[in-house]
Simulated scan of single mutants.
Amino acid sequence: MPAPDSTRAAVLHGPGDLRIESIPLRTLGADDVLVTVDAVGVCGSDMHYFSSGRNGQNVLRQPTVLGHEASGTVTATGSDVTLEAGTRVAVEPAVGCGTCATCRSGRYNLCPFGVCFGSPPTHGTFSERIVAASRAVHPLPDSIPLEVGALIEPLAVAVWAVQRAKVRFGDRVLVTGAGPIGILVMQVARAAGAAEVIVTDVNDARLERARALGASAVLNTAEKAPELSGIDRLLECSAHPAALWQGIRTLRPAGRATVVGQAAPSVDGLPLAHLQRWEIDLVTAFRYAHAFPTAIALAAEGRVDLAGVLTGRFPLDLAADALRAPVKDPSHLKVVVRPGDTTARSAAEARTP
């Protein structure tokens, strides 16, 4: 059967203006696959676009489908694709152009020419179907449910962050921010061999979830900075400059701080003299490169609990509610949109099988 030429999708026209519409699908190329989308995770970037029409320095300039954390089933393939229809996959949203010097070096996450699903003006995955390059889809083992497969993308973020942080066996690790990325970073750091992983936040519900999923200790920093020292690795996942500055002070000499949460364009207060005096490395992490296979393996082996961060599900017609949910209820961690599921639920029913 010929591939469809259109799909229903949630299209953002402006701040707070999300409409369910039929949009055209691009023609299936020789190296493309058609994916019927099962689930799409709601990311903080989606929420920023929805609330203000921008995320960092990128601005919504034309109607765009949001979403980039997707899983689904391959239902059609181009002539050069060896993957079979019916394969369950996680979708990698940004794979670079594949030909520039940066991509050829292996760091395709830094490609200056690449595009990313759901990053305006590129249409994303809050859609019943998408067309993707075959190299952007990763088969899922049977042990990973499709709905949970949508969380492979944020898990890949965590894998790359821990790799950039150079977490080693026996390390003491501090993770600032107990959102979905922070909790996944905590689990990956434990899987990488960290002896102790401490998580800080200002939300007790999120801290309790971090504890339940394996944090060695949790600290609420709403009233005072963490009284810690001798930390080997800091992974800052809250995007609050104060958390980074406070976390740096906990590091041992020659420790390493990694910025994971989306940074503001510029920030004041960098303790440069302190970094220099103690030769503390300050590095950043942006998306990931070649991290999906590791993320899938960690989830398949049960070394990371993805279902434990899933707190809500919504049908495509209620995608706007999904984008509002973590703001209305800060205890939410990861919310998913189920484009093909008209029975998707939310809130207290979210964890019901």
Rank of each mutant, 00 (worst) to 15 (best):
A297C: 09
A297P: 02
L298S: 03
L298C: 04
A299C: 03
A299H: 03
A299F: 01
A300S: 14
A300Y: 01
E301P: 11
G302P: 01
G302Q: 14
G302W: 04
R303N: 10
R303I: 00
R303A: 06
R303E: 08
V304P: 13
V304I: 08
D305G: 01
D305Y: 02
D305S: 08
D305E: 05
D305C: 06
D305L: 11
L306I: 04
L306C: 02
L306W: 00
L306Y: 09
L306V: 08
A307Y: 02
G308F: 05
G308P: 04
V309E: 07
L310P: 02
L310N: 10
T311Y: 06
T311C: 01
T311H: 03
T311P: 02
T311F: 01
G312P: 12
G312F: 02
R313G: 14
R313V: 03
R313W: 06
R313S: 15
R313K: 09
L318R: 15
A319R: 08
A319E: 10
A319F: 01
A319Q: 09
A320E: 14
A320M: 03
D321T: 00
D321C: 01
A322K: 13
L323I: 05
L323Y: 00
L323T: 04
L323V: 10
L323N: 07
R324V: 08
R324P: 08
R324T: 10
A325Q: 07
P326F: 10
P326T: 06
V327D: 15
V327G: 14
V327R: 15
V327H: 15
K328H: 15
K328N: 15
K328M: 15
K328C: 13
D329K: 00
D329L: 01
D329Q: 03
D329H: 02
P330I: 14
P330W: 05
S331E: 09
S331T: 11
H332Y: 12
H332P: 15
H332K: 01
H332A: 08
L333R: 11
K334Q: 11
V335M: 03
V335P: 07
V335F: 05
V335I: 13
V335E: 13
V336Q: 12
V336S: 11
V336N: 06
V336I: 14
V337M: 07
V337L: 05
V337E: 14
P339Y: 11
P339H: 12
G340E: 00
G340V: 12
G340W: 01
G340N: 13
D341S: 00
D341A: 00
T342Q: 13
T342I: 02
T343M: 12
T343L: 11
T343F: 11
T343A: 12
A344L: 07
A344H: 05
R345N: 06
R345K: 12
R345G: 09
R345P: 05
S346L: 00
S346E: 07
A347M: 13
A347P: 00
